[in-house]
Amino acid sequence: MGAASQDEFHDFVAARRPTLLRAAMLLTADRGEAEDLLQSALTKTYLAWGRINDRGALDGYVRRTMVNINISWWRRRRLEEYPTDELPDTPIADHTRRSELRDGLDRILDRLPPRQRAAVVLRYYEDLTETEIAEALGVSVGTVKSTVSRAMSKLRDEAAHELASLE
């Protein structure tokens, strides 16, 4: 890659990193995993930089790459993680930068299964269509509709409990 292309990639990352990290955080529900996910996606983007002709589609390219990598990680984790009787220690949430309502929403999103969380994030945070979500997750449009519907129902129930606990 030439110096001009490297500068262009550097400028893209500098400008879009916060937005892309937010999307990664919503996909993974963990800051460390989100940073790893974004780094992996940016590495793949860097390697493909010369083949990406439409620079206006870079955000979509990186988001799609993050979704694909995240799906790959789910599948790998499914084989490596087994339930136990002991719960792991949970980190203390950082309340200095977020409102209680935002923390409540994050906790509710964390409780969703990975596919439901990904579908909700792509639909309502990334504003993708059901067809685009189906392509990104590798499922049918009907599966996206039912997944989002079940997730939203669960979110409504959980939100009612969260709001009651804040009062």
Results as ranks from 00 to 15, higher is better:
Tyr124Arg: 08
Ala118Phe: 01
Glu130Met: 08
Gly104Asn: 02
Thr96Val: 15
Thr90Gln: 15
Leu128Tyr: 05
Ile92Ala: 11
Asn70Ala: 06
Leu128Arg: 00
Leu122Asp: 02
Glu81Ser: 11
Arg117His: 05
Arg98Phe: 06
Thr90Met: 14
Ala118Val: 04
Pro83Ile: 07
Ile92Cys: 14
Val62Ser: 01
Glu130Gly: 12
Thr65Tyr: 01
Leu112Phe: 06
Glu126Met: 05
Thr84Leu: 09
Asp89Glu: 15
Arg111Ile: 07
Asp103Met: 05
Asp110Val: 09
Thr65His: 05
Leu87Ile: 11
Pro83Asp: 10
Asn68His: 06
Tyr125Ser: 04
Ile133Lys: 00
Arg78Asn: 15
Val67Ile: 03
Pro113Val: 08
Asp85Met: 11
Pro113Asn: 11
Thr90Cys: 14
Thr96Ala: 12
Ala118Pro: 00
Pro88Thr: 11
Pro88Lys: 13
Arg76Thr: 15
Asp110Pro: 03
Asn68Gln: 06
Glu132Trp: 04
Ile108Asn: 04
Leu112Ser: 02
Asp127Ala: 08
Thr84His: 11
Asn68Ala: 04
Pro114Asn: 06
Tyr82Gly: 07
Asp94Gly: 08
Gln116Arg: 14
Pro113Trp: 07
Trp73Ala: 07
Tyr82Ala: 14
Leu79Ser: 14
His95Trp: 10
Pro91Ala: 14
Leu128Pro: 00
Ala134Trp: 00
Asn70Ile: 03
Pro83Asn: 06
Thr84Ser: 12
Glu80Cys: 15
Leu128Val: 05
Arg111Met: 10
Leu79Met: 13
Thr96Arg: 09
Arg123Lys: 09
Thr65Met: 06
Arg63Val: 05
Ile71Trp: 04
Gly104Tyr: 04
Leu112Thr: 00
Tyr124Lys: 08
Ile71Cys: 01
Ile108Pro: 01
Glu126His: 02
Ile71Ser: 03
Glu81Lys: 15
Arg63Cys: 05
Leu79Ala: 14
Arg115Leu: 05
Arg75Gln: 11
Val121Thr: 04
Ile69Ala: 04
Trp73Leu: 09
Arg111Leu: 10
Arg102Thr: 13
Leu112Gln: 03
